[in-house]
Design a protein around this nucleic acid. Structure first.
Lengths: 218, 218
DNA sequence: GTATTATCTTAACAACGTACAGATCAGATA
DNA sequence: TATCTGATCTGTACGTTGTTAAGATAATAC
């Protein structure tokens, strides 16, 4: 009845071949699913291997150890995070204050849409911080935020950041990060009048919060 | 030569008695030492038992499980945290803005002085959130912060919090919490000109950050 | 003094991360 | 085509973890 495709290299085979063919990516996908379902602490390398259908020793050929696999997850997280911040920045157009506000919203929005990834990314003990490319990907995301702060303060690219600029940057970063962290931690859940889930909370309270960001004094 | 005190109930004995006598507190002390040395993830129940000089099964008579022990640690953390916030509040005197700023400083200062405890307290998955007394101790600490916000907005105790008041509260909480979390996470370490350790960072940059807190609009 | 209860030990179990040796397969070389 | 080489995966095993069950010991109550 059904036509059967067999044995071609890329076709889905009922019985998995001895060689998996796509193990690395599937381990990453499994890891992301696990931390989403069970939290960052709920991750185990063996469970990831189980979901990919391989033995517990198989991942070692693609990642140095469990923290290495989570390093790859963090790397992809910072990539997506940077992209989200850049998109927010672009959405802000030429108005420096709007760029900053849009980036702030994008920051929190990313955390809401990627809770497990976000929480992993800021738990340095959980993954291999030396994982190749990770540091620069994090620096890239940070740089996008710094760019908007520089613009808001009228600093050119060559100009060094002033102490006041650093203070401003830290204040902006602190407020969006704190908001994200507290929301994901459920700390705001106790507050009454916040029915409607996290999205509603963000939509309701983030704009006025960002509006409270200090105007640049320069 | 030496006079020997033996067998009195409270005296330190070279060979520990079969009954420990002070196991619960020593387990808590050991747990706090471990998370300080090795991070929250570095904690193991067996290591805590080892340091207290008892078998791995002994803690079960004082705490339901490992998360229960960390629940006690978190409980004591929230107690000390609330005390610190209250002290800051008192230091602010009668000026509502000063009360709030002093509490903000106390918030960050607590995190800097109790990094492991602070990080544990805001990692709900790590400890038993149902641990007796924990929820109310957390609510107490939160209430102290809310009190200063109410005062800053001129709200009486009986008066309900307005949506704007909640927004203000969340902004204040977010900024001090985000600052604490990012500092402890080492995220600010990359920023140049911040040599001198965390204490220096706080002393230099927290005051201007707090000065950027929005004035109450009422 | 005896019984009860609280406290601790010993022993065991399943799950974990990881290392090691060997099996299997893909692709290059000849 | 045949063989070799390296990459990929399995099977097995070791030490560590949290937790439980059964028994030993000491403090307390009666």
């Amino acid at each position: 009845m059904n036509s059967v495709k067999i044995g071609t290299k890329k076709s889905r085979q009922k019985k998995r071949a001895y060689h998996h063919g796509d193990l690395k990516d599937q381990l990453v996908a499994a890891a992301e699913a696990i931390i989403l379902e069970r939290g960052v602490d709920g991750f185990t390398l063996r469970e990831a291997a189980r979901r990919a259908g391989v033995s517990p020793a198989a991942p070692a050929h693609h990642f140095r150890d469990a923290k290495g696999l989570l390093g790859e997850v963090a790397l992809r997280g910072f990539k997506a995070f940077g992209d989200a911040l850049a998109a927010g920045d672009a959405k802000g157009g030429t108005d420096p204050q709007k760029r900053l506000a849009e980036q702030g919203y994008a920051y929190v929005d990313f955390a809401m849409r990627n809770p497990a990834r976000f929480q992993l990314m800021f738990q340095h003990g959980k993954y291999d911080v030396e994982y190749p490319g990770l540091e620069q990907m994090g620096a890239r995301a940070f740089g996008i935020l710094e760019g908007a702060v520089r613009a808001a303060l009228g600093l050119r690219a060559a100009e060094p950041m002033t102490p006041d600029a650093y203070g401003y940057l830290m204040a902006v970063w602190s407020i969006v990060h704190g908001f994200s962290h507290l929301t994901l931690g459920g700390e705001f859940d106790k507050l009454p009048g916040l029915q409607g889930g996290r999205d509603a909370i963000v939509k309701t309270f983030l704009p006025p919060t960002l509006r409270r960001l200090p105007a640049p004094g320069r």
